[in-house]
């Protein structure tokens, strides 16, 4: 507004001798042009990279879901919108921002299992994992750690110790119970914990139990057929 007064006030102090005639318009224009060019460049590169990034993320998710559901024929992504599960995402909502579960079906169109992703604090930082559960038997079908920063050599055994991981593929029932190796009595819900990584193993078990508690109410009313086979009823 009042460039002149500003300049008058500033001049005795700063005494800016170089380029006294630069106007505010010129400064503004410089930044605007630079910003516009920068934006243009970024948008151009984004056109090229964005599809690849999305494709990669989708591929990784698909791999994980397929693994923990032990190879379903197909699976549907159900989003939790306003307290109900729906395969259709309302316009304007980003799929990766919504809470969702992945329901896997067999060739015959029966529910094979439900994959749920969840993150909670482990020993160092948040442990993010995805696991599959068969709602009929309440048994797990698999578990995969998606992201963790657990201590290398100790806590990272939750995904490097294959004996530990394998247990989750052998149908332990929920709620899981962590026991010391050799201390269990053979109950179907027991998981042998990792020696030296008790906290991280407990975190995995806790995350799964919490996720089941949260999602269990929805298991009852799941559509028994995949979306594609359901017709136009919805």
């Amino acid at each position: 507004m009042s460039d002149e007064t500003n300049a008058q006030e500033a001049s005795p102090v700063a005494a800016a001798p170089e380029e006294p005639g630069v106007s505010a318009v010129r400064l503004f224009m410089t930044l605007a042009v630079a910003g516009a060019m920068a934006g243009l460049l970024i948008v151009m590169v984004n056109q090229f990279t964005q599809p690849r990034i999305i494709a990669y993320k989708a591929k990784m998710l698909k791999l994980a879901v397929t693994e923990v559901l032990q190879g379903p024929a197909r699976y549907d992504t159900l989003y939790l919108i306003d307290g109900a599960l729906t395969p259709d995402l309302p316009a304007g909502l980003k799929p990766e921002k919504q809470k969702a579960i992945y329901v896997g079906y067999t060739e015959a169109g029966e529910i094979k299992g439900i994959a749920i992703a969840r993150g909670e604090s482990g020993f160092q930082d948040v442990v993010m994992l995805i696991f599959g559960i068969d709602p009929a038997t309440q048994g797990l079908t698999g578990m995969k750690i998606l992201a963790s920063k657990e201590t290398p050599g100790l806590g990272d055994k939750i995904y490097k110790d294959l004996d530990f991981v394998q247990q989750f593929f052998e149908g332990p029932t929920v709620p899981l119970l962590g026991v010391k190796i050799g201390a269990g009595d053979g109950a179907p819900n027991e998981i042998d914990m990792i020696t030296g990584a008790t906290i991280s193993s407990r975190a995995v078990i806790r995350i799964i139990n919490n996720a089941v508690t949260e999602w269990e109410p929805f298991f009852e009313n799941l559509d028994k057929k995949p979306v594609a086979a359901r017709g136009e009823t919805k």
């Binding site: 380029e19 910003g35 920068a38 970024i42 590169v45 990279t49």
Partner: peptide
């Protein structure tokens, strides 16, 4: 680049290339 806005302009230029590097690496 006028002297008064040089730092802002440099940051703008640097930020642009950083964003590019970020996106290319991710892809």
């Amino acid at each position: 680049i006028p002297h008064e806005v040089r730092i802002s302009t440099y940051i703008l230029i640097i930020a642009t290339f950083v964003t590019l590097a970020d996106m290319v690496l991710e892809a």
